[in-house]
């Protein structure tokens, strides 16, 4: 159920990236897609009545290993979020360059003005 809603969020991002004319809206659609994928990966690792995979000095190690959530998707998503910021800045740089060239954020205008 929750996974299906993540998929719907992904499809909304896909709609924004494919159907919108404004280039900022396209960037926002890609950002929404990234959110949906990150959330889906982290939700995969959740265990019922789980706890965060961080030890403190008091808990028993076997009990911890039986209760903690999966750390591997969290590690993957942690790097992916920071990469997402780098990619976002790259996309914004390209958008500014396109604005300098064409004077608009409209994608269809750019196609017509290409000449």
């Amino acid at each position: 159920m929750i996974y299906a809603m993540c998929f719907i969020l992904f499809l909304i991002g896909l709609y924004g990236a494919t159907c919108k004319k404004n280039i900022v809206k396209i960037i926002l659609g890609l950002v929404v897609m990234e959110y949906a994928v990150n959330l889906f990966l982290v939700l995969q690792g959740w265990r019922k009545n789980g706890q965060a995979p961080i030890l403190d000095g008091r808990t028993n190690l076997e009990e911890f290993a039986a209760r903690a959530v999966d750390p591997v998707p969290q590690a993957l998503v942690l790097t992916s979020i920071v990469i997402g910021l780098g990619i976002l800045s790259l996309m914004v740089a390209i958008a500014i360059r396109l604005y300098e060239r064409y004077g608009t954020f409209d994608v269809t205008e750019m196609k017509r003005l290409k000449g």
Binding site: L85, G86, S89, V92, A93, I96, Y99, E100
Partner: peptide, 14 residues
Amino acid sequence: SLFMIFIILAVIRV
């Protein structure tokens, strides 16, 4: 690197 990208995007305008 994040500060550098911010400062680049902040000083540039069309």
